[in-house]
Design a protein around this nucleic acid. Sequence first.
DNA 1: ATTTCCCTAAAAATCGATTTTTTCATCAAT
DNA 2: ATTGATGAAAAAATCGATTTTTAGGGAAAT
Lengths: 221, 221
Amino acid sequence: MTTSPSAGTTASSQVFEALKQDLIRGRFAAGEKLAISALKTHYGVGLSPLREALNRLAAYGLLEQENQRGFRVPAMRLEELDDIAGLRTQLECMALTQAFQNGDSEWESQLLAASHRLRRSDEQPDRIEEWEQAHLRFHRALLGACGSPWLLRFIGQLHDQFDRYRRMAPPNPGIRATLDGQHGALVELAMARDIQAARALLDTHIRLSHEVARGCCSPSP
Amino acid sequence: MTTSPSAGTTASSQVFEALKQDLIRGRFAAGEKLAISALKTHYGVGLSPLREALNRLAAYGLLEQENQRGFRVPAMRLEELDDIAGLRTQLECMALTQAFQNGDSEWESQLLAASHRLRRSDEQPDRIEEWEQAHLRFHRALLGACGSPWLLRFIGQLHDQFDRYRRMAPPNPGIRATLDGQHGALVELAMARDIQAARALLDTHIRLSHEVARGCCSPSP
DNA sequence: ATTTCCCTAAAAATCGATTTTTTCATCAAT
DNA sequence: ATTGATGAAAAAATCGATTTTTAGGGAAAT
């Protein structure tokens, strides 16, 4: 019996994940209309699971569904990037405060582990996707102890939206180094439970990513 | 040529809306597993549009999708109600502040209109659904000028989640009167741009609904 | 030259049937 | 008595084909 890498999962969920990643990674042009039959062959699934995945992505906000004319990749608007970044800052600072209050030693351990993995994957500049995954997990670990599943849900959704913009920017080793230094500093502030300093640093951290992404986003229509 | 009440809209969207309302109104038991073929006949649609609607509702958070065993109505958990109410308070207070800063005279007009409709529909105690709609629109009008589409999206989602719990409580004219008084007071504070008092009142307003809903929610498992 | 209408090709949405997976009752073995 | 295998029935997921709607070109009328 051979175990495929996706055993036990529906075709619909697999396409959802694959399509979600491709949308966040910018594999489709902003504003592009999706050709469903092309997607069918590209992802190797039938019409039903594909359409179910598209519907879920539209509800999630990574696609737009127009009345009777299919699905479209949302346009990139500077105005929206500012909205996403601003709200992300507020919600993450909120979660950070609660995580600092609720976090136990298990949270500290997970955070240290995630931080270590992030630092290690940073040493492999060619393996971008591994770094991206480690980065996402680090931010999840940082806020994971906040105690509010709905807050974490919204933060995750905003993070995905933000990444769609951030990934448009070309890699920049200098900025990357600064951001990674902030990751390490955040861990230290978490251990010390220094809420004030940590909030300020997280704000700065998101603001810097925001500025970078902003440089690669054409003005709103 | 006859124009049906839902002309120009896909079957999938219609089932989505109908199912969404039925879920919020508590027409399904909490924790219940949905029998897809029964839904098919009940809503008078085929399998494909129904499944697309179910997928969208799962992504929205009004249904849970288990790996290969269909869709289930989420359980009602006191812990989750507290999470929803707490986060709703924070996000709505945030939006309220921004709406008070950005709101122009058009916003004031819309708010007055929504407030008037709400007061009028309150005089018809038998037409609950009309009041519910007016109530939802009032709260949307109050925060609509905040300037952040993503914040409004999350607030709307939390409002739907909250209503699923709130609607479990039997009608209570006394509390209803108190809540409606608060609606009127919120309008006055909006006109006066009294942010501090309005935030405090909105907090109280949500807290009262929360307490009512809390009384009808069994303890978490 | 512009507008309007019709017609056709393409795409989206939906349906009915098939395949796959789960559920659960039954029965044998320890 | 409990555990574990077995198989039929039910439910979920998927496929292929059909129906409906849109998009766009070209002819007729103003």
